[in-house]
Structures are given as C-alpha cells and as structure tokens.
C-alpha cells in the first residue's frame, strides 16, 4: 500500500489490543499488540491520530512511550467512565491535543470511529494534511493572569512539534522571541507602559513600579492578550493581540533598526524576534502582531 493512500492512521489500544484505521480501509482492525509490534508495524508513518482508551497505568505508560516515539502525531485520549476526573487532569497536564470521552459501554472501535467522524466533519480542530498536522489553537488571558514565560514555552513547544524549531538552543531562541512579543503586548500594549521609563534609572525600577501599579488597576489589568497559533506543513504563524491603544509600529520598527538603539536599555525585543521569525507583520493599528516562520526546504541526498 502506498503511503499517500493512507492519509492517517488511528490507533487505539486497551487490554493488549490495538486498532488500526485508515481511510483506505474504512474499517477498524483490532489485533493483539505490544509497543514493539506497533513500532514495527508503523515503520515511520507520516501521520497518525491516536485514540487510546486508558484504564490502567500500564496503558498510560504505553501511550506515553508512543507519544515520545511519534511526537508529530495528533494524540487523543479515550478515558473510561469512572477514571475521567483523575485521568483528565493527568492527560491535560501532559499536553494532549484531542480529548474524547467514550460513552458508557461504548466499545473502543466505536469510540475511535466517533473520533474519526468528528475529525472528518471538522468538529475537532486538529486534523491532518499531507502527512503533517494542521493545527489551529486559540488562547486568551487577562493581563494580570498571563504567565508570559509559561505561555512562551507552550507556543515554542507547538512550534517544535511542527518541526519549526528544535530542542536546544534553537528552541531557547524561539521561547525568547515569543516571550519578547508577549511582553510587548502586555507591557506596552495593555499596560501602556512607555519604554522611556526604563531609562529613568539604571535598573529600570521606575518602570517596574509603574508596571506593578497598573497591574492592580482594572482599567489595564482587565484587558486581554489573545493568541492565535496556526501551523501547517510549510508555515507557522503566531498572532498576538492586545487591547491597548494603537501605536506607530512603523516608527518602532525603524527605531529597532537604528544603530543608536544598540546602546539603549530598551528596543532590543524586535531584534530578538527577528532572529527567529522570518516576518513580523503588524496590523490593527499595531495592536496585533503576527510572527511568521517558514520551514526550510528539506535536502534529500
């Protein structure tokens, strides 16, 4: 069977069984399986969507192993009734993309086919396209609730899954770039803090004090930061929106490029973003910024 004929696989396993479903087959095959046989069976598939009914620690560990082995898959979990609360929390913490609660007494095969149906009908956002996952994620936080570093890690993690950055220095730089864009949205956008305040004292204490004051002021803190992340085969785009006033973003970009900016205490965030992303696109009067990264073409030898 040619690889192109199998747009995606779905696996499910429980009590030592695994189910394979492909569009070409249009039916679920259930066979006894171990992690080893799954690996040899898969070879190196382009994409799979995994739906797992987890009812034991052993199931969960098998699932974790597969997830490490195939990080590009869209992972889903079928959680047995009765385990929902505990496992839901656990799985959410472990970053599962899809989530499915099988109905009581629903067989694994039915649950998986229901998951498939939802993917086909577009009810579940994560889907597959030409061997790579197409993903659209939306996030929204109030200004006084957003944990910038954690969110930057989350977004960079998604970029890593899409192979737009890689573990190590590359990912560190991506985390930093996203962090800078988020800081701009929070501090200069929603909190309306002027960078000039940073120049008032050596360590920017006046700036920090004003930031703290505004975070306690609902006029600023109730504003939200929204993120739209879109990843496909060739391009990743992360749009960060704030609810502050419009600003002259063209002047800001010019300022960042100016040589005299080098010796100032502020204005280097744009540099750090440009190191990682191919394009920075401002819109909505500067309240929205989209960071775009293209995948470098692969070289086959």
């Amino acid at each position: 069977m040619k690889r192109e004929e199998i747009p995606f696989y779905v696996y499910g396993f429980s009590d030592g069984e695994v189910g394979l479903f492909s569009r070409g087959m249009r039916q679920l095959q259930v066979i006894p399986v171990t992690t080893l046989t799954i690996r040899s069976w898969l070879g190196k598939p382009d994409v799979s969507v995994c739906a797992v009914r987890i009812s034991s620690e052993e199931d969960l560990n098998l699932f974790r192993q597969l997830r490490v082995e195939y990080p590009m898959h869209s992972w889903g979990a079928c959680v047995d009734p009765g385990h929902t609360s505990f496992l839901s929390q656990l799985l959410c913490r472990e970053g599962f993309v899809l989530f499915l609660h099988p109905l009581e007494k629903e067989s694994l095969s039915i649950a998986i086919q229901r998951l498939l149906g939802n993917i086909f009908k577009g009810r579940i956002q994560a889907s597959v396209h030409r061997g790579l996952r197409v993903m659209h994620q939306s996030y929204r936080w109030k200004t006084d609730e957003i944990e910038v570093q954690a969110v930057a890690q989350l977004i960079a993690g998604q970029l890593e899954m899409g192979e737009f950055c890689f573990q190590g220095r590359d990912k560190d730089a991506a985390v930093l770039a996203i962090e800078e864009a988020l800081i701009n949205a929070v501090e200069h956008g929603n909190l309306e803090l002027d960078s000039a305040l940073k120049e008032q004292d050596i360590m920017g204490l006046a700036y920090e004090a004003e930031k703290t004051r505004r975070l306690l002021d609902k006029m600023y803190s109730a504003r939200r930061v929204s993120i739209e992340l879109s990843i496909d085969r060739d391009k990743a785009a992360c749009t960060i929106m704030n609810e502050g006033p419009e600003f002259d973003f063209e002047a800001e970009l010019d300022r960042a490029d100016a040589v005299e900016c080098l010796e100032k205490a502020s204005g280097k965030g744009i540099f750090l973003i440009k190191r990682v992303f191919d394009r920075i696109i401002y819109s909505d009067g500067g309240k929205s910024v989209t960071l775009v990264k293209h995948k470098k073409p692969e070289v086959f030898l």
Binding site: V175, E179, I183, K198, A265
Partner: peptide, 15 residues
C-alpha cells in the same frame, strides 16, 4: 545561560 531577555540586556548595558 543560553538566552537573555531584551529587558535584561538593557540592564547589563546600563550596568
């Protein structure tokens, strides 16, 4: 240290 935010770079420059 692998990365430093722009704000921290500003502090190093001022220092």
């Amino acid at each position: 240290v692998n990365t430093v935010t722009s704000a921290a770079i500003g502090k190093l420059i001022n220092f």
